[in-house]
Nucleic acid binder design. Sequence first.
DNA 1: CAACTACATCGACATTTGTCAATCTATACC
DNA 2: GGTATAGATTGACAAATGTCGATGTAGTTG
Lengths: 114, 114
Amino acid sequence: MAAKTRAAPVDAVGCCSPVSAEMLGQRDAELLAAAFAALADPIRLRLLSCIASAEGDEVCACDLLEPSGRSQPTVSHHMKILVDAGLVEREKRGLWVWYRVAPARLAALRAALA
Amino acid sequence: MAAKTRAAPVDAVGCCSPVSAEMLGQRDAELLAAAFAALADPIRLRLLSCIASAEGDEVCACDLLEPSGRSQPTVSHHMKILVDAGLVEREKRGLWVWYRVAPARLAALRAALA
DNA sequence: CAACTACATCGACATTTGTCAATCTATACC
DNA sequence: GGTATAGATTGACAAATGTCGATGTAGTTG
């Protein structure tokens, strides 16, 4: 700690108040960052909003293609990212795949922004 | 809208319930995504947490170097991203730069996750 | 079993991102 | 003015990301 250079000759207002010991841990920061990264894409946000506002609280994957304006592989890729981030739940029923938002995960992210 | 293929011959459970008309707009999605992208990096999250937990609610840039473990240009780069995203406010006082979190912006992001 | 359908995975590519060394700019001290 | 310091900007580069066409896989229908 004391290794701080502090060579500044300026006595104006003074800098470098002791930095708080409370900082997000490395591991926690990585987990949080991964979650926010999943939200850091306009397409994924629109997909998420599409699911969140669906009646019955779930949406079939096929219904996500047209509104997103992206190819099927691209949408599948984005959905995988959302699912891996824990923001969306995936359930295969017969030939189709249905998605639901995971409210607990969203709440956790909200809490992290407090 | 009616252009939906709907060629599925399967009568099982039926897919493709009408997708809700309420979806995040393109422009809004881009703005939100940009904000989340600013949070999608462990270093930036730690910098933010460092500032948020500082006594006096502000931190000098020089105090962010050591805890972040990154070079001065890199920290400057990350802080610019946080400032541009509106998450942090920047104020130059004399030779130093002080940062404060912008609570309103954080609250707006929290609201977007509701 | 054969044909079909919904979705996932792969391969390739252009774009974006995080990083640092070197340099520049602005402010403060003498 | 000359020198020193805090922070920003530039240039370069490796790594990660978004995208699509082609192909693979699991389930359904006949």
